[in-house]
Simulated scan of single mutants.
Amino acid sequence: MKKWIGIIITIVLMAGAGYWAYEKYKPQPEAPMEVPPPITFDVTQETMTQTILVKGKSVYTEQADVFAPYASSIKQWHVKNGDQVKKGDILFTLDTSALQTELDQMQSDLDKAKLDVEMNQISIDQAGMTETLGVTEEERKKAFADRESKRLANELSQKALVLKEKEIRKKQDVMSKAVVYAASSGVFQMNEGDSKTRAVTEGQLIGTITNTGKMKFLTIVGEEEMFRLKVGMPVQVRMSAQKDLKFTGTVSKVSKFARKSSDTDLKQASQFDVVIDLKPDARMYGGVSLEGDIETMRKDKVTAISSLAIMRDQPEPYVLMDKGNGQTEQVNVKTGMESGDKTEIVSGLKPGDVVVIP
């Protein structure tokens, strides 16, 4: 009896183990595949633009050089390096002592020359009153020659006086320029760091006045971009180092001549200079690297949609318009300009439509 009980228990245990193994390792039915929802795109009405990306540098457009009017030494500075000056402000004063001494000597020589001319004229006049005509022809000729010689010499002396007076006036004009004024408004920058009194030569560059309120953005474009540009196009500008700083500008010049470097190398594509006038902004500095988006085309109230929604595997572009309840309709569309990830829809759709990608 005990033997049969043991057999039955063994059979029950084996059956239970077999059932457990079956439940654990039996093939699982495949889960139903979830169909992802279609991707939808709204047809919108918006402003679309096309731009050209350019890179370059900012430069100051109004700079006035300051020169020494004559050789001397700077007697007094009225401004410091980096000062903001206005047109007409005194920049510096030159020493006039040497020039004044020269003028005094020239005036003294002129006065003496005038006195000599007057004395010679008196002598000529007196000689004319007491002169004898002479007895012989030779004596008369000699008297005439002496008289003409004195007259001509006095005329030459008078002409020399005129030249001396002109020289004096020139010197006086030069000395009147001893006080040097600012020809324009801006920031004054000395050509040399030393602002102490120093000797200068005539025409020496002393410094530069820069109008920091007027700057240009200089850039270069290729042949394809050049034909798309026109004077007056707006430009959105940013600093390459600080892209969060935004500025505005306008295209003021598009060169009609290629740069010299591209003329000599026939394998290199031609490049053209473009000048962009920047709107005054205290945050802008000269000589910094800039980037700009030149707006070459703008359309307002354009019917637009994401370019991804447009199918192009047929002769004509088309979209699948959402008809609701999972139904779609193929609609042929006519496209226009493209900007970024958007495409203009000229016909076939209207704002408010929904397009899907299955």
Rank of each mutant, 00 (worst) to 15 (best):
W4S: 14
W4L: 15
I7F: 11
I8F: 14
A15R: 01
A15S: 14
G16C: 13
A17T: 13
A17E: 03
W20D: 03
Y25W: 14
P27K: 01
E34N: 11
P38L: 09
Q45H: 00
Q45A: 13
E46W: 03
E46M: 14
T47W: 02
T47I: 05
T47S: 15
V54G: 02
K55C: 00
K55T: 10
Y60W: 05
T61M: 11
Q63C: 04
A64N: 04
V66D: 02
F67H: 13
S72P: 12
V79S: 10
N81C: 02
Q84K: 12
K87S: 15
F92W: 06
A98I: 05
D104W: 00
D104T: 12
L110C: 03
K112W: 10
A113D: 14
E118D: 10
I122E: 11
S123K: 08
I124C: 05
I124K: 03
I124R: 08
Q126E: 09
T130D: 08
T132S: 12
V135E: 06
R140S: 15
D146F: 08
E148I: 13
S149Y: 12
S149E: 07
R151A: 07
N154I: 06
E155D: 12
S157P: 00
L161N: 14
K166N: 13
K166V: 05
K166R: 06
K177P: 03
V179R: 06
V180L: 09
V180T: 05
A183C: 01
S184H: 01
S185W: 03
Q189D: 10
G193I: 08
D194A: 06
Q204M: 11
G207Q: 15
T210A: 01
N211C: 04
F217K: 05
I220Y: 10
E223M: 03
R228K: 15
M233I: 01
V237K: 04
K243T: 13
S252L: 00
R259S: 08
R259Q: 08
K260Y: 09
K260V: 07
S262W: 02
T264G: 07
Q268C: 01
F272G: 00
V274R: 04
V275H: 07
L278D: 00
D281N: 15
A282W: 04
A282S: 12
G286L: 06
S289L: 14
L290T: 02
E291I: 09
D293N: 15
I294R: 02
R298M: 14
K301I: 00
S306Q: 03
S306H: 04
L308W: 09
L308Y: 13
A309L: 03
R312F: 03
D313Q: 06
Q314T: 11
E316V: 10
G326P: 10
T328C: 04
V331C: 07
K334S: 11
T335Q: 06
T343D: 04
G348Q: 14
K350T: 10
D353R: 07
I357V: 07
P358T: 11
